[in-house]
Nucleic acid binder design. Structure first.
Lengths: 88, 88, 88, 88
DNA sequence: CACTGGAAAATGCCGC
DNA sequence: GCGGCATTTTCCAGTG
């Protein structure tokens, strides 16, 4: 019950190595992204706003609407102003 | 140089215990918050929107404006529509 | 479709207020913790080392009396160099 | 104060596009990883155990050939019960 | 006062 | 389909 045949070990090892390779690539790309943000920052831009932009561009327009719908309803329910500067 | 007197150990221990007590309380409250959100969800509300509400109520109106200003400028720069459903 | 009955408004308001109260308590406790760390620091201890102790005690409550290592961390907390100068 | 010169717009656009490209690549790789795990699972292995192996190899690369423990994890990956039935 | 590191929060995935 | 868990992202205090 403790014997594992070599073929199985090889297969598991192969999987593990494939996964490690992929994860390394992912990490590398994450590091590139970090570099770009560093460059953006060093050029005086607001990285937070850029991230916000990316997020918005990822959301399709209809999703944005859907996402904001419930929020509007709740804000209304709680008597919160929409954009006129009154915060309940 | 390796000797530490007992009084010092006692003092450190006292600090550590005070901190652990406070952190336990914090954890407990965090768990209460989780409970409330669970209840909110079980009543059919959209927890994400509620969280958004809490965030908005925390921000004073002028802060909201300031935070959104740069974003608007960038969106404008990139030709992104503000709210008309066009996503670049 | 934007109409919400009064009972719902009341319920949402109640949830939001409960959550805000809890979050205030959490923030208050976090501030107490900060105070304790400030006191610790003003007494000449190494804050980082104390945090290390807290982490250790959380991770392995069963071994917390294993004095050898704890002593090292205490020494670090006291700012005492020993051996290679690096605890943790 | 809302006017942005064309060069700035171009630069922001360039940054955003570079970032989106990189994030797409990252997402793609994440999806490959998911595929590999699906294949692993379809071959009857315990995904969770494989993740354990990856974690171990990341934490202690120097000891990764210490076969005793790795074998236990492999066995877990194979779904073999042994000893107390709990690895990790 | 910008940067780094660590804690907290949010998101997304996986298993049930 | 939901809840729990892990990862990722965001935020903030501490540091130089």
């Amino acid at each position: 019950m403790n014997k594992i045949d070599q073929a199985t070990i090889d297969q598991l090892t192969s999987y593990v190595e494939r996964l490690e390779k992929l994860e390394n690539e992912k990490t590398e790309i994450a590091s590139f992204i970090k570099d770009v943000f560093a460059e953006i920052k060093s050029n005086g831009y607001d990285t937070k706003a850029i991230k916000e932009i990316l997020k918005l561009r990822k959301l399709e327009p209809q999703d944005r609407d859907k996402q904001e719908y419930m929020l509007d309803v709740y804000k209304k329910a709680l008597g919160m102003a929409f954009n006129d500067g009154e915060a309940a």
